[in-house]
């Protein structure tokens, strides 16, 4: 990254500063507002479709809201934001989700 050396070119009214300050200080709920959190993952969830009963428990328990599921459908896991916490695998009543070390 290129370092930028800022000199004291103070905008005397400060309006522009306040606008930028507010933009950077405040955050609104949004998909990926904290970056691609999927890169934090150590273990990734593997879903075995043949075992899945489509109960939706994994969808209900996922703390990061990365599992999408509609009734009588197979759930889908968004691997861009899944942090690999393993809760889905833990709550799955039929062991259809297995946590596997990344890269294996």
């Amino acid at each position: 990254m290129e370092a930028r050396y800022k000199i004291l070119d103070i905008d005397l009214e400060g309006i522009e500063d306040i606008r930028r300050f507010r933009e950077k200080l405040l955050s609104r709920p949004d998909k990926g507002s904290a970056g691609k959190t999927g890169t934090w993952r150590l273990y990734k969830p593997i879903l075995y479709i043949d075992k899945c009963t489509r109960c939706g428990l994994c969808w209900l328990y996922c703390p990061d809201n990365v599992i999408s599921w509609r009734q009588r459908e197979i759930p889908e896991i968004d691997m861009e934001f899944c942090k690999g916490c393993g809760i889905c695998g833990d709550v799955c009543p039929v062991d259809a989700i297995e946590m596997v070390l990344e890269g294996e």
Binding site: L25, P29, G35
Partner: peptide, 9 residues
């Protein structure tokens, strides 16, 4: 809805 000073880069 907004958060003040959320975790960021």
């Amino acid at each position: 809805g907004f958060a003040v000073g959320n975790l960021g880069p």
